[in-house]
Design a protein around this nucleic acid. Structure first.
Lengths: 202, 202
DNA sequence: GTCTATATACGGATAGAC
DNA sequence: GTCTATCCGTATATAGAC
């Protein structure tokens, strides 16, 4: 256990993150946060100066953790391209099942404030990852179709992340409950790597 | 030209839609809308009773138009499964290039209020569309892999829509401007049908 | 239908006591 | 560090004149 933050500070952080994820920045009030974290309203400003600043901090940390977990998989030196995609599918799907509001939150607040993403060191790293150079090698060797790597990486993320973002729609169309939906996503852990390999092969 | 709405009403609708799409419900104020549409603040309530009601109306119409355009493609009796996917890719990508904020808006406000989607008659229609039954036939005949049709339809949408949602990220990673990004999406009109066919074939 | 003026409430933030 | 009380700006909404 880290003791980086005091108890109250931690309570505020947790409540704030939970509410920002659920309702976004504007729809969340400082009073909401104070109530959810069981602290006095004035303490929020004492610790974090302003609502905006608190949000930026939460946002930055969330984004940082998320990107780190992503790059981790892509840069393993030992694994094949297929294994990386398998690992990515499996890890990301688990990650998002554990925190299903994460993708919408990130994509949303990124649209409003793309600058935050620029500051992230890890962002550029993805395009220079092991996974990308393995893919480009395959293209050069004529094993894979000659398609720009941006499509390759976009497709992986699309097939993994998008179903979560439109889960309300999917659940309505198929009359699924949350458990059913998660089962469907667990199926995709095996399906996505198959699909991706088929897509890139000549 | 329809004359369904008076001039002022129309101005309010347009301004409201534009602002709700850009900033979402909470971050948009009635004053914003009044200013953008060049009308007096009080008129907003005169015509639409409340901000909430105005939003619901805009939301419903936007969703309705969107779903209708989608189903149109899926239900053509004449075309093959490949042609439908080609048409879908092409039409949806054009549609979203014309109104790039649409997907995020719909997915977002749907998360907050999934009930709106339930009311849509077209929602269920998708799963009973011509496209789905063509796919299921293919599975039955053993031409396609035995994978549930929900994955099939999810994949089509994922590959088309997701890149738009994370366009800020893609543009940052690849240092693209808006024109470059749209070019990339236009490439995908041809790529996505190829990919999808490869994914489903045995 | 359109305007001005205003009621009413809420949200972010701080002063100042403890 | 934590609390109460409160300031102040802004937001939604309406009353009432024209």
């Amino acid at each position: 256990m880290e003791t980086k933050y005091s108890d109250t500070e931690l309570k505020i952080r947790d409540a704030a993150k939970s509410l920002f994820l659920k309702k976004g920045y504007s729809a969340t009030t400082t009073r909401d946060i104070a109530q959810e974290s069981q602290i006095n309203l004035a303490l929020l400003n004492y610790y974090f100066t302003s609502k905006r600043r608190l949000f930026e901090i939460i946002m930055f940390e969330t984004l940082y953790d998320f990107l780190n977990k992503m790059v981790e998989v892509y840069n393993d030196e030992e694994t094949t391209i297929r294994e990386k995609i398998e690992l990515a599918s499996s890890k990301y799907i688990d990650m998002i099942i554990a925190e299903p509001l994460l993708p919408t939150f990130i994509l949303n607040e990124l649209k409003n404030n793309p600058t935050n993403f620029l500051k992230m060191p890890t962002a550029k790293v993805i395009m220079k990852s092991q996974l990308i150079s393995q893919y480009n090698d395959g293209v050069k060797k004529g094993i894979y179709k000659k398609v720009d790597s941006i499509h390759f990486i976009t497709n992986i993320l699309s097939l993994i992340v998008f179903p979560f973002i439109c889960s309300p729609i999917i659940m309505k169309m198929e009359k699924l409950n949350k458990t059913d939906f998660n089962k469907m996503m667990n199926q995709r852990k095996k399906l996505i790597p198959e699909w991706i390999i088929q897509m890139i092969k000549k």
